[in-house]
Design a protein around this nucleic acid. Structure first.
Lengths: 231, 231
DNA sequence: AAGTGTGAAGGTTTTCACAGCG
DNA sequence: CGCTGTGAAAACCTTCACACTT
């Protein structure tokens, strides 16, 4: 039971495509809220910050859902992307670490609109345990096994300080959570069957600063060029 | 003065390499704190979650700073990576939006250790303006031009709700900030000379969920395979 | 022996350019 | 006519395997 019609017709989407599909989905959500009904590859590409050919190629992996000469129907495209990268689960999200980052994730508007449901919060601070944030009670890590109803369909979000992260990850894995999003600025060593993704805010700044330097350098080079060409 | 020896010997690092170098730097910071003096490509690669050959190839773009048969000196490698992706600036960071996310960024340990300095906070909420977080006073957006001392060397972090993001970005750009990190779940339309990077927490969950599905599917396929081979 | 540095091979991703449909 | 869908070409990135160094 529960199985429906199409059995995974796609043996696998290119990784790079998956990352962009998630972004297109966000842009489509926004367009839908604004009541836009149709969008061309050019418009959607601009909104997502990629080039139109790339967007069309990405979408072509899902099938042929556009209308030639017109564009894409916003609702139907949103539905089809969702089928491919969101559908298979009613994912539960638990957040470990109810500091500022944890709190900001609880409220995050992008979660609900994509079908993710925050089901529990955990912390080690006795002052927090028993209180609640946005209607979600904060549990002790000791209650992990009791609180988890569906470990296999649960994403654990690690929003703790770096030194606590590995320990938290180990406990989550022991409780059956197989999918982790790590915000702590440290790598995690885990069995390879666990799916992990890391978001490192420090690295993001660094990457940004590098690109900025480069683009300033390029501009300088180009303006030399321009002044040689003269006016 | 201030200009030193080598003039940018590297015309440009591959994008993918830059993203990983930032991660290596984080791992090296951690090793240095723990007092480790030497590390091999295998160890560092594990810590950063990549394969050793890739790490060596990445480092080879910076020059030849390893010791054959031994590994890399942690401090010196850290220094050289920093030279290539961090150095050129004493970057200032301003954070717009002092909600939970903004607050968590102010405290973020990964920032200071990489040479980024939070220099100002901004918000639109009159109840917040004038108060301070971790010693950083919260300013009104109207004071943007006054507070910025070095717009060109400033990274603007957008930690506002989605609907405020575009307006904030426009004001930052108008004030001379050319480098933005956007946490709001929306795309920004900006002049192309502006360097932007987006971190979309909703997309991160979605990408993670997709990979999880896939790896469960693969495991299922493999266990069929195993049972065919029998035991 | 142990581990780096690197050409060359093999994959993947992006871009191009245009055929084909509405 | 405009815009999608897509092979084929080009660019880019990863992995391999081994010469070379300490």
């Amino acid at each position: 039971m529960g199985g429906h019609g199409l059995r995974g017709p796609l043996p696998g989407l290119p990784t790079a495509t998956v990352e962009r599909l998630a972004a297109y989905l966000g842009a489509l959500n926004a367009l839908e809220e604004r009541g836009v009904e149709t969008v061309s590859s050019g418009e959607l590409a601009t909104a997502a910050g990629v080039n139109p050919a790339q967007l069309r190629k990405d979408l072509s992996h899902l099938g042929s859902y556009g209308i030639r000469g017109v564009g894409y129907d916003v609702q139907s495209l949103r539905f089809h992307i969702d089928q491919n990268i969101g559908s298979a689960g009613d994912w539960h999200v638990i957040i470990v670490g109810v500091g500022n980052l944890g709190r900001s994730l609880v409220n995050h508007s992008g979660f609900l609109s994509r079908g993710f449901r925050v089901v529990a919060l955990f912390d080690v601070d006795p002052a927090l345990i028993g209180r609640s944030v946005e209607g979600h009670p904060i549990h002790s890590m000791a209650d992990l096994a009791t609180v988890l109803t569906e470990p296999a369909a649960t994403i654990g979000v690690i929003a703790t300080p770096a030194q606590a992260a590995q320990g938290v990850a180990d406990r989550l894995v022991a409780a059956g959570v197989g999918c982790l999003l790590n915000f702590a600025p440290t790598g995690l060593e885990l069995p390879k069957e666990i799916t992990v993704r890391r978001v490192d805010l420090g690295s993001e700044l660094q990457i940004l600063a590098y690109h900025r330097q480069r683009s300033l350098a390029d501009d300088a080079a180009e303006s030399v060029q321009v002044s040689v060409l003269g006016d």
